[in-house]
Amino acid sequence: QKEELKEKAKEAVKRGNKDKARELLKRAGISEEEAKKIIKKIE
């Protein structure tokens, strides 16, 4: 489940939808700070 949400978040970032990505990562139980780092890494 968590990995699936991370994959979806990756796709969202690639489409330029960072808010959606952050939302998905939060749903995966990832903190706001972690989510920001992950999104930065994907960009």
Rank of each mutant, 00 (worst) to 15 (best):
L24S: 00
E11M: 08
E33Y: 07
R22E: 12
E34V: 06
R27D: 10
E32C: 07
D19P: 05
K20F: 13
K36D: 15
K36C: 09
E33A: 09
E23N: 04
A12D: 02
K8C: 13
Q1G: 12
E7A: 11
A35G: 04
K20E: 15
E32D: 13
N17S: 05
K8Q: 14
I42S: 05
E4K: 11
L25N: 02
E34K: 04
E23I: 06
K18F: 15
K6C: 13
K20H: 13
K14I: 11
N17C: 13
A9V: 15
E3T: 08
I30G: 00
E33T: 08
G16W: 01
K37T: 10
K26W: 06
G29Y: 00
A9G: 01
K41V: 11
I42Q: 05
E43A: 07
S31T: 10
K26Q: 10
I39A: 00
V13M: 11
I38H: 02
K36N: 15
K8W: 10
K8V: 04
E23M: 05
K6F: 15
I38D: 00
K36R: 11
V13L: 12
K26S: 07
L5P: 02
S31N: 06
I38L: 09
R15P: 00
K41P: 03
E7S: 07
A12M: 13
D19M: 10
I38F: 14
I42L: 12
L25G: 00
K14V: 08
E3V: 06
K14C: 09
R22S: 07
D19T: 09
I42T: 06
K40S: 13
L25A: 04
E4D: 12
K2F: 15
K20W: 14
E3N: 10
K2P: 08
E3C: 09
G29I: 00
S31I: 03
K41T: 12
D19H: 07
K10W: 10
A21Q: 01
R27I: 10
Q1F: 14
K6Y: 15
E43F: 07
K26Y: 09
E34D: 08
E33N: 06
I38A: 02
G16C: 07
E33C: 07
I38V: 04
E7I: 09
K37W: 09
K40A: 15
Q1V: 12
R15G: 07
K41A: 14
A9C: 05
R15H: 11
K40R: 11
A28Q: 02
A28N: 02
V13P: 01
K18L: 15
N17G: 03
A21S: 00
L5C: 04
A12G: 01
E23V: 03
E23D: 09
K8F: 07
R27C: 08
I30N: 03
K20I: 12
R22H: 12
K6H: 13
A12T: 02
E3Q: 09
K18H: 12
K37I: 13
K26L: 15
E43H: 05
K40F: 13
R22D: 04
I30T: 02
E4I: 13
Q1E: 12
K6V: 15
L24E: 03
I39F: 04
E11H: 06
A28M: 07
R27M: 14
G29A: 01
R22A: 11
K2G: 09
K37C: 12
K18T: 12
Q1L: 14
L25W: 00
E11L: 10
I30Y: 15
V13W: 12
G16N: 05
A21T: 01
K26R: 12
E11I: 08
E33R: 09
K6L: 15
I39K: 00
I42A: 09
G29E: 02
R22Y: 15
L5V: 05
K8G: 04
A21H: 02
I30V: 11
K41E: 15
K41F: 12
R22F: 15
E3A: 09
Q1K: 11
E7C: 12
N17L: 11
K41L: 14
K6G: 04
R22Q: 10
L25T: 01
K10Y: 13
E33M: 07
K36F: 11
G16L: 03
K37M: 12
K10H: 07
K26V: 13
L25F: 07
K18D: 04
K26I: 14
E32F: 07
K40D: 15
A9F: 06
S31Y: 03
K36T: 14
K37R: 12
E32Y: 07
S31P: 09
G16F: 04
R27N: 11
L24A: 03
K41S: 13
K37E: 14
K10G: 05
K40W: 15
V13N: 02
